[in-house]
Amino acid sequence: MIRDAKLWTWHVLAGLVIFVFLGLHMLIMHLDDVVNIASLNPAGGHPIDWANVVARGKMIFFPVTYTVLLGAALFHGLYGLKNILFELNLGDGVKRATTVVLALLGLGLFVYGTWAAFASLALARSL
C-alpha cells in the first residue's frame, strides 16, 4: 500500500502541474491579446476560430499536455475527494472500497481522456 507521505507529495506536485498547465491554457485561449503566441494561433484572429482550432489540433504538443493535465487533475481531485470522504469516520472496509472505486474511476477516466486527446489529433490531421 502506498503510504500517505508519497500520495500527499504527489498531490501537491499534481497541483503544481495543474497550475502550470492551466496557466498555459489561460495564456493561449484567454490572454492572446496580451501574450500572443503566433505559432499556436497561426490563422490569427480569435483562438477558437476554426482554423486555429484545427491548426492546434494537428500539433502533438496539445494531446500530450492534455494527457498530463488530465492525469494531474484526476489524481489531485480524486485524492482530495478521498481525504474528504475518509474524514467522515468510515469503517476500514468502506475505506478500502472507496479507495478501489476512486482508483478505478480515475484510471477509467484517464484512459478515456487520453484516447479522446489522441483521437482528436488523428481527426485534425485527416482534415
Partner: peptide, 10 residues
Amino acid sequence: VLEGERGPWR
C-alpha cells in the same frame, strides 16, 4: 508512523 495515515497529512 508519520508516513502513514496517522501522520500530518490530514
